[in-house]
Structures are given as structure tokens and as C-alpha cells.
Design a protein around this nucleic acid. Sequence first.
DNA 1: CGCCTTCTTGAGCCGACTCAAAGCTAGTGG
DNA 2: CCACTAGCTTTGAGTCGGCTCAAGAAGGCG
Lengths: 226, 226
Amino acid sequence: MDKMGCGVSNRDNNMGQAAPLGEDFAFFRPHQFLAREGEPPDGLFHLQEGWACRYRLLGDGRRQITAVYLPGDFCEPYWILGRLPSQPVVALTNVRAARMPCRLPTGAMTDGQKRLWRSLGESCERQASWLVTLGRKTALERLAHLLLELFERMRRAGLAYGQQCALPLTQMDIADLTGLTPVHVNRTLQSMRARGLVELQAKWLRIPDMQALRETAVLTPNEVLA
Amino acid sequence: MDKMGCGVSNRDNNMGQAAPLGEDFAFFRPHQFLAREGEPPDGLFHLQEGWACRYRLLGDGRRQITAVYLPGDFCEPYWILGRLPSQPVVALTNVRAARMPCRLPTGAMTDGQKRLWRSLGESCERQASWLVTLGRKTALERLAHLLLELFERMRRAGLAYGQQCALPLTQMDIADLTGLTPVHVNRTLQSMRARGLVELQAKWLRIPDMQALRETAVLTPNEVLA
DNA sequence: CGCCTTCTTGAGCCGACTCAAAGCTAGTGG
DNA sequence: CCACTAGCTTTGAGTCGGCTCAAGAAGGCG
């Protein structure tokens, strides 16, 4: 349940600025839903700030996170394909997002639409890569893949500084992304730290040796984050 | 390498029948590629007969199959999004497919295009479901999910007879789909057989108790194969 | 008939899990 | 400024699901 009300508001109502025609904004706090399973989403969100994730919860409490949304990402490109969300999406941090209509664009191909198609393509590819990682890789390889991907996406969004970036995930979130337990994530991160592969503390990620981390992740050359 | 030549041919050349305008057909034998990593596909294939799969091979021989294509499926809807295939697709059996242009449809929405969009949406959703299964489920649950999904898709394609259907996969293929080893697939299938959950032999699948198998797969009610 | 792939079985091992209990923060309120 | 709390991280000890290695049985096909 939303603890803070609906989370969606017209920018005119609280900012005193004219929003671009037909566009308004939405704000979410951690744990607030951007979409619920089986319910039509309020719109397609273009994240401006903050992180969100899509997941599935099994009856006995097992959880798997199936997508992460970073600033600059669309959430969720699949929605334009006309199906109801099959998995809920929640904010991981405070989120600010532009809200746009959620339907298949028709007619002329604008830049915004091109970006949306590209985003859809990248999502599909990332999912396919994660099927490989979850199906066949070790804990060490999984973590390397995850941290590399998140860093690379943050870098592209202009949010990396040198070889570091923000990473507002708990070890439990990381466990639910990689299909591991929090305890094992903790131990594996320690061993990565010991080998100089990553530094990760206080929600901040640093990658001292990108090449080494890439090799650890056993990604194929043209994997999404190339 | 294709052992049998290119695999794509204009139907007029070998069937003596007029093909629908602008459409031709392609034939593949087991292990022939429908698409290679990083190379533009010959077209978008609409499978009429036979099975194919998409996969990734890691350097040390580990393989994960990331999609299966059955008769009636498009292979591969993602291709219309304008990226080069990031994972190869090979035929698992003899395949007959209609070949169509591989680009984003524009203009009026025909029935064929609607089917293509729906197909893309279903693919995305299936992938998301498999992320959960590979990340969080036991061997038993994974196999139940797989067999249930394949049966249901075959049923929708009109290729199930009562509670049985063809299933032209080796136990090694099944292992590469479920992220397990062939040995463990074998043992787990035996225990499923012993519990009366499935019968699987000679490339033929029978599901005596659909409800029991569904419960075993711990799927959420509105999972793709609902 | 002989070859090759697939399936099956046995024995031992190990990567990741479970359970449990401390240490850390960071935020809250007195 | 400090006690108090709640959530997160870390550590230890023991277990187990699925893996590895190896060999034999059972198909399928030329």
C-alpha cells in the first residue's frame, strides 16, 4: 500500500511552472509502487532521479528482482506492448519521473520514440543476458556482472565520477538480483574486495580495475554493457 | 557452420507454387543456424513446423538456452527493434518457416502486425518469468515450469492431443534450459515420474495431473501460460 | 552389425544455503 | 548529547542440493 498517497501529481499543482504539453511528473518514496501486478500503470515513467525495480515474490517469501531502473531509463518499455504488468515495480529510493502516455506510438518516428524503442531493445537484451547469468554463473561471476552493468549504465546516464558511482542497494537487494542469499553476497563481496576487484560501502561503488572485473564477469564482447 | 547450405530459398524455386506476395520460405536441419551472433538475420521467421532455440555459450563450455521457438512462434520478435542478434538461434529439429521482412512495421495495424506485437510482449514476459525460475527455484520447480510452459504453448498451437504433446528435446537441452546438469535433470525427472507428475519418454510428454504439476511449478496465477 | 548419441546409475564432493548471534550505522526522541 | 531502535552488515558452524567424474545400458541409424 502507498503510505504517502498516490505519488502522481501534475507539476503545475506544486511547482508553479508550465510543464511541457501533455507531460506531468510523479514522485515516489522508497517502497512505493510505480505499478502493481495486473493493474494498468498510471503511465510510462521516464525516470529523472532515483532507482526502482521490478520483482516477483513467491508464496514462501523468496524474491527475485527482474529489472532495475536507473535515472534516464523508461519504466517500463514493455508496457507499451499493451499487456498489464505481470510483475510489480517499486521505488528503491526517492524517485522523480516524467509521466507519459502508455501506448504504442504510431505515425512519424520522433526522437523520443526512437529512444523508447531502443530502450525496449536494450531491456530485452539485458534480460537475455541475465538468463545466462542466473542459469549458469557462479556467485562471483554474478556479482561482477551486476556491478559492472550498474556502473556502466550509471556512466552512460552521466552519473559516474571517474571509476565510481552511487549504488543505493542493500546487500539483500543485491542478493535478490543475483539469485543468492544475503549472507553469501556478503562473503563474496568481501573476497572481491580482498582481490581488489571492487570497493563497495556506504552505498558507493568503486571499480579500481575495470578490466579485471570484466574478466571476472565472463561476459561476451558485445554484451549490452559493451 | 551450416552443413547443408544456406537454408533459405524462394518457394517458387522448389515447390512450383505461387508464394504469397513478398513472402518466401526457409528450411533448416537440426543444428543449422537461423541467426548468428552479431550478424543481421536473413529475415523474421514465422515457424510453421519444428523447434528452434536461442542460447549463449560461455568460454568454458557452459551453455544456457534463453528461448525456445515452437510452431506458430515468431523468431525472433526482438529483431524488429533494430539491434543485431546478441545470441545465436539454431534449429533443434527440421524447421519450416515463412520468411518476412525484419523491420519495425509502420502505418496501419494489420492483424499480422498485432500478432507480432503480442508475440513480442509474450516473449518479454516469458523471459521475466524465467529470471524468477532460474534465480530462485529448485530443480523440481524448474522442470515443472518448463514442461508446463512447453505443453501449454503446444496446446495453443493446436499441437497437443489430450494431455500429451511432442517434446523433441534431449535431457541435455532440458538441462541447458533450466540451468541444471543433465545428470540432475535425469534424476529429477525420475522422481517426477515416480510421483505421477509427468511421463516423458521417446520425445513425447504426457501430463497426467495438470493441477499437481501447476502447484509444483509455483507459478503466479497470471503467469504467461495462464 | 557397429557406432554414436542419449539415458541411467553410483559415489564422493563442494558451493551456496540455513540458522543463529553479534556488531554496526543512522535516525529518533528525550 | 546520549539512549534506544530498526535495519543492515558481518561472522561462525553445520547442512544439503546439485555438481563432478566415471562407467555401463539402451536406443537409433547407416
